[in-house]
Design a protein around this nucleic acid. Sequence first.
DNA 1: CCGATGCTTCGATGTGCATCGAAGCATAAG
DNA 2: CTTATGCTTCGATGCACATCGAAGCATCGG
Lengths: 206, 206
Amino acid sequence: MLLALMGGKALTATELSLEAGTTAQTASSHLAKLVSGDLLLVRKQGRHKYFQLHNYEVAQMLEGLLNMSANKKPIEVPTGPKDPSLRNARVCYDHLAGKIGVDLYSSLVSNNYLYDNKDTALLTDSGKQLFSAFGVNLQELEQKKRPLCKACLDWSERKSHLGGSLGKWVLDEILSNKWAEREPDSRVLRFCDTGLNQLKSKYKMA
Amino acid sequence: MLLALMGGKALTATELSLEAGTTAQTASSHLAKLVSGDLLLVRKQGRHKYFQLHNYEVAQMLEGLLNMSANKKPIEVPTGPKDPSLRNARVCYDHLAGKIGVDLYSSLVSNNYLYDNKDTALLTDSGKQLFSAFGVNLQELEQKKRPLCKACLDWSERKSHLGGSLGKWVLDEILSNKWAEREPDSRVLRFCDTGLNQLKSKYKMA
DNA sequence: CCGATGCTTCGATGTGCATCGAAGCATAAG
DNA sequence: CTTATGCTTCGATGCACATCGAAGCATCGG
């Protein structure tokens, strides 16, 4: 299971139990031990529990163990839907998900606009400046019950994308600018070329 | 036991069993497994068996594991005699042992005069040049049954010092030059200051 | 509200494995 | 030679722990 998590993705308990070739009960007890031993951390999302390696040290330790053992390759676990367009960009409730959403999130983090702490996400000072300059009324959003930023675990990518009221604002902007449009009866978001470029330049995505 | 071996010293099975707090039998079975799993390697020396970590990868792997565990410090196992002069320099059969012997050996290796392969030691080409220039008749020594060079595990330091006929030659030279003299009824070698300096400069010891 | 899904807790079962006593073998020391 | 030391093999014992069925709880979807 740890091997499967070496891919960097967060996986559910059931996925991990299948990977390990055991029942869900067995996997559950092992995962509980791994969590209590601070090797893994959990993100509970609805009825799912997503597990991921606790930090870089754990990965490093496993790396060392893998070096010793015979089969050296980490395992790639296929996740999410097969439909490529659904994997690429889609709506998660009211915010952007899929590969593009994850890319956006990691850009915000690497450009120091967003502080990522696994479960939570916080706007940095320069992040607040950025979105204020975009015309976002941060004070108004912060007064609501709903958190401004949320690290939401992406279904297909298994990494964080941006949720919360700010995530909603981003998606609203994408739709109102016609950078992308929703497919009817589907969660798929279809970006047009110019729209995608606009998004990328606006958020300094690689 | 692995933790105890992280100090870099080679330890005997009994020492390791004491360290682990088990009987000799238990330790023996564990050590056999560790050896067959290529985590450790053994050097049999008389009735003793000296164990040490197999290579750098193992140490790295353990390092990673230690990072995770609570007590982070490798253990120092006291070895050999308490008498400081005995630890510093002594005779091992007919060659130099103790701290100075180990230092000499590692100098030869780091200056590329000697090729160290854990159990065995071989003179490199430049090593052959060096000792030939010192007046050693290598061809004569190589014809004897006894190996020219031997990596002999040091009792107190638990690292290699130089044995074999070349090791004997080195000690003979030390004694004939009066760089050191043997204490009566003891294996202690007592170097004089100038003698030690001569030795160090001759073999480019740090 | 109901069924389905995801996960956990409880309890029982079996086995793998560490542990050690006793005996055996090799080497060293006297 | 004999005795002591270091290590291993064999065999018996017992515990720890993985495993899974069954039941329970929470969440989702209709």
